[in-house]
Structures are given as C-alpha cells and as structure tokens.
Design a binder for these strands. Sequence first.
DNA 1: GTCTATAATGAGATAGAC
DNA 2: GTCTATCTCATTATAGAC
Lengths: 207, 207
Amino acid sequence: MPSTRDRILDACLRLFNDSGPFAVTTAEIARTVGINEGNLYYYFRKKEDILFALFERFQDALNVVANAPHETGGGSDPGLAYLERWFRLMWEWRFFYRDGAAIKRMAPKLRARNVKLADRGQADIKRMLLQMVEQGLLAASEEEVDRLVVNAWIISSYWLDYLDSRHNIGKVTPEHLDWGFSQVLSLFLPYTTKAGQAQEKRRRQHV
Amino acid sequence: MPSTRDRILDACLRLFNDSGPFAVTTAEIARTVGINEGNLYYYFRKKEDILFALFERFQDALNVVANAPHETGGGSDPGLAYLERWFRLMWEWRFFYRDGAAIKRMAPKLRARNVKLADRGQADIKRMLLQMVEQGLLAASEEEVDRLVVNAWIISSYWLDYLDSRHNIGKVTPEHLDWGFSQVLSLFLPYTTKAGQAQEKRRRQHV
DNA sequence: GTCTATAATGAGATAGAC
DNA sequence: GTCTATCTCATTATAGAC
C-alpha cells in the first residue's frame, strides 16, 4: 500500500486530468482517497500545495525522458523516439496544459518553473533539429528552425484541448495520440530531405 | 450613454480578457460598471448568462469578418487580409480561447455553438487554401491542406496563451500580434510557389 | 496519522422597497 | 431599473479528541 501522501497525489492527478483542478473540491479528493478531509490538510495545508507537489513529479518524469534519449528500440531515429515519449508524458499530465491559464492564476509560483521547463525543452528540440539539418535529414535555415520549434511546442501543448473543444473528445485513446503526433510531424515534413523521408519510412514500417 | 446591459457586457469583456471569467466575481463586475450587484442580476440572472450574451456578440463579430472578405485595401490578397482581420478578432475575444477549458465546464451549452463556429471557420480557411492551390499560389495535396488548416487553427487559437505562459506576456501589443501572425504564416510558407512568394512580397511592401 | 467537529469565508443569487 | 438587505451554499481551512 503506497503512503497516504502518494495516494492523495495519485488521486489528484486522475481527478485533475478528468475535471480540472478547480472543479475538484478538497471534499471530493478526500472521498476519492478514502480519508477524511481533515487528514488531507495534514499532508497539504493548502490546495495549492498539491499542485506544487504534482508539478515536482511532473518535472521528475520529464527529466527521465530528457536524460534517456538513447533507449530507442530500433535505435534508428532517436529524435522521433524522444518526441513520442515526450508526447505521451504530456498526455499523462494533460491537466497542466489544458488548464494552464487558470492554474497560472491560482499558483503564480508555478510560472517561473514552467518557463524554465519550456526553456529547456525547446532548447532540446532545437538542438535535435539542428543536428538533423547537419546530418542532411532536414533542410531548414536557423530562422525556420526557430519557427518550427515554437509551432511544434504550441501544437504539442494544446492539441489535446483542441481535440476536446473541437470534437468533444475528452477521453483520449492511443489513436488520438497518434493523430496529434502526426499533426506535429506534419510541421517538419515539408522540410525533410529525400534522405530524411527514407528514414521516416523505415521507421513507420518498423512499428 | 450606452444601455446598462451593454455597459455590463463591455466591462465583462475587458475584465474577462484581463483575468478570466472565474477570477472575476459578480461583485467586481458591478463595481466596475458602477451599478449595484442586485441590479446586475436584473439583467443577467446567472453569471453564466453573461457568457452566453458575450458569445452572441463574438459570433456577430465573426460573421462580419466572414461575410466581408472582399473589402481588402490594396485588393491584392484577400486571403491574407481575411486572416489578419480574423486574427485581430480572436485577440479582442481572447478570453474565450485562453480559458476555453474552464468555460466549457461552466457553460457546457457553449460547446455546441463553439463547434459550429469552428466548423465554419475551418471550412472557410480550407476553401481559401484550395482556391490558392488552384491559382497556383500554393502547392499542396488535399491531405496536406487539411493538416495545415488544423495546425493554423491551433496556433491561432493558442498562441496568446503560449506567449503568456512562456514569456510572461499578458498584455499583448501590436508587435506581438505581428509575431503570432508570422508564426501562423510560417506554416504555409514551405508550400508557397514562386508566384505565391512574389505576391506575398508585394503585400509586405504595400504595408 | 487520522478523525470529528466546526469555523471562516466569500461567492452566487433572491426578495422586496423605492 | 436600481438599490438594500439578506440568504444559501459550497469550499477552504483549523482545533482538538482519539
């Protein structure tokens, strides 16, 4: 049995992903965990503190993804494998993205950490893209790469919310995940060289 | 002096754009308008109703943009002119985009209308792009056009929130508007033909 | 560490006088 | 149409027994 603290955080992640952190009351959290509301406040003196703790976890998970870029199965394309892992992670923590505006207002302290996180993520992606340019897989100027990084970041961050508001898809399946992934991929496609396209084709057949 | 009802809606648009519809209380609204809270409830019996009324206005404004696609100044490029007007409109009603997730939960009735709006908007954009393909300004398959439409829609809808959460830019200036606009434009750039690029150049010099 | 109570707040909303 | 007064209620949060 995990610790009560962990059970609280697990429950909150689920609840927040489903309904957003503001529609979820402390009473609901306690009920879900199966503890009393007073006990909840023993672990987290403010509701805000739960958000901080969850963000810590999120960061840790991101670090794992970022620091293990070479564990790809086929090994043929670390860039795409990285993107896929990163994508899945964002889905697991989707409430941070979906309710970003409201969270920012409630817990302004998270802002700075979030910026740091994006700084690093975008730097990672940019480095990866420039490397692909060097390898002759992509053909793009640095300015184009910068635009690409930002667009990829935005699509990745918001496609879940888009899917929900546009097509009433609240519960996302692996197929949807694929769709979003392709949507991001399509940003890079016009910049791929013949060599890059061949490699991508090999990857797809591999899956 | 506009009617009290209009003054309420004007004030709410401002307040909501600044702080989001949930951080803004009915007390604050009444104070801003300079009326009593009780009076506010004479016009809108539920806070939700204010959102509905604002959405009506938003739709009307969109209709104006959509139905007047030929009023472009230089007349050389209706597509881009349309995009610019549409972009500015989204900025004026940015809280609908930024706080979409939370609004959806509070006023589920808005969902359906929102979907309709997106249906129409995306159909408009697609038609416009296909027309540009026919005119030889763009080179893209229909599948590519579909991907483009969705990506353009997502970037347009969320770049403001991105700017805020990524760079702490809450107050957007015309320069930022330009930045976002270019970001969307960069999606189409790799698909432009030589003829299309020449036309775009003429447009830029015209401004 | 966990529970029972209960406080403290602050929001949305209403009734009825003017 | 506008205001005063008041209500209801959900929610966060605390104190103290077990």
